[in-house]
């Protein structure tokens, strides 16, 4: 293919045309004028949209109900869409209908320099390096390397106070022996008989407002009342339940979502985040899903007032696994 346009003339005003596209409106001024009127209409619609936006902003001046908010959002949004869309449609139609549609051509410049140029550039680098003496003076090279390498350390060091070292904070919770089991919603102690068979509630050792967010995030426990006789305690945990009531950490051992779903018929706890499923009567062992550990169990009993209490703290960290955990 040796078309004329390949011999591109650098001094020419505009890039040469390779494919001349003549549309009806290019040949017929009447059609072109009609296109112009249509485009002008689009710009006009945009102007109307902008005015509409101002009207909507002023007309719904004080938002006082959610309904106001909804209408305000609707009218502001629709008028803004018209305002922007009119400009968009007008400009794009202008380009497509009235600006020349010819395809023009341009040669790509060779990105790679000729060999001599490459050689010269390499030479400059070498000569410059020689002038600086970096190649000869290895003492300078090494000491600068040391200085720059050390210089990176303060930057890293400054990040140290971003947070405390984790230490043992992940291993412990606020639960300890004789902690009351307080209803997480009301703050009232949960008493024997409060829960119906097959129901559960979230409990805390303190009222929510007396806890830090960090403690609150790992403390919640689920108190579940199972059907009589179905609980099969793990060896060594025979007295951790109290009259078919069992208590397990609510924080999933997968990545720490609170477990919110209890399937009454199958006695399973389901984490809604990734569907790890725990078999409550069998020490909350994982029966499905990505969690690898059973939910930690809180040993409970009932005090003289008939209120539930913890008889000990958790015997293991709650929540997701981490490297330091055995």
């Amino acid at each position: 293919m040796s078309d004329h346009f390949e011999s591109h003339d650098e001094t020419s005003l505009r890039p040469p045309i390779v494919e001349r596209v003549i549309r009806p409106q290019d040949a017929d001024p009447k059609r072109a004028d009609s296109a112009e009127r249509k485009i002008a209409l689009m710009f006009l619609l945009s102007a109307i949209g902008t005015v509409g936006f101002i009207v909507a902003y002023v007309a719904i001046p004080r938002l006082s109900t959610t309904k106001d908010v909804r209408w305000s959002n609707f009218w502001l949004g629709i008028s803004l869409t018209l305002s922007l869309g009119g400009i968009a449609a007008g400009i794009i139609a202008w380009v497509r209908w009235l600006m020349p549609a010819h395809e023009v051509v341009q040669q790509r410049h060779e990105l790679a320099a000729p060999d001599e140029e490459l050689e010269a550039a390499a030479q400059v680098i070498v000569v410059g390096a020689q002038e600086s003496g970096i190649a000869r003076r290895s003492l300078l090279k090494r000491s600068l390397g040391l200085a720059l390498g050390l210089f990176a350390l303060p930057g890293v060091l400054l990040l140290r106070d971003l947070g405390p070292l984790p230490r043992k904070t992940l291993d412990t919770t606020l639960w300890k022996a004789n902690s009351p089991l307080l209803n997480a919603e009301t703050g009232a102690p949960v008493k024997l008989g409060d829960l119906e068979v097959g129901s559960f509630t979230t409990v805390l050792p303190l009222k929510v407002e007396d806890m830090s967010e960090e403690d609150y995030a790992k403390t919640p426990v689920l108190l579940i009342r199972l059907e009589p006789g179905i609980n099969k305690p793990a060896p060594g945990r025979e007295n951790w339940a109290y009259q078919d009531h069992v208590a397990y950490s609510k924080i999933c051992t997968h990545v720490g979502c609170p477990i919110g779903l209890y399937q009454k018929q199958s006695h399973k706890l389901l984490c809604p985040c990734h569907q790890s499923t725990f078999d409550v009567p069998r020490a909350c062992k994982v029966v499905f899903g990505p969690a690898a550990r059973s939910l930690p169990q809180l040993p409970i009993s009932v005090n003289a007032d008939g209120e539930f209490i913890a008889t000990a703290s958790f015997d293991q960290p709650v929540g997701p696994s981490f490297f330091e955990r055995s």
């Binding site: 959002n73 609707f74 502001l76 949004g77 629709i78 803004l80 869409t81 922007l84 869309g85 400009i87 968009a88 449609a89 007008g90 400009i91 794009i92 202008w94 380009v95 497509r96 600006m99």
Partner: peptide, 19 residues
């Protein structure tokens, strides 16, 4: 011009969706 107009088109689409 076309790419400028296209900016307004993208903006208009997000505004329309948000409305």
């Amino acid at each position: 011009a076309k790419t400028g107009g296209f900016f307004f088109a993208v903006f208009a689409v997000t505004a329309g969706l948000s409305a």
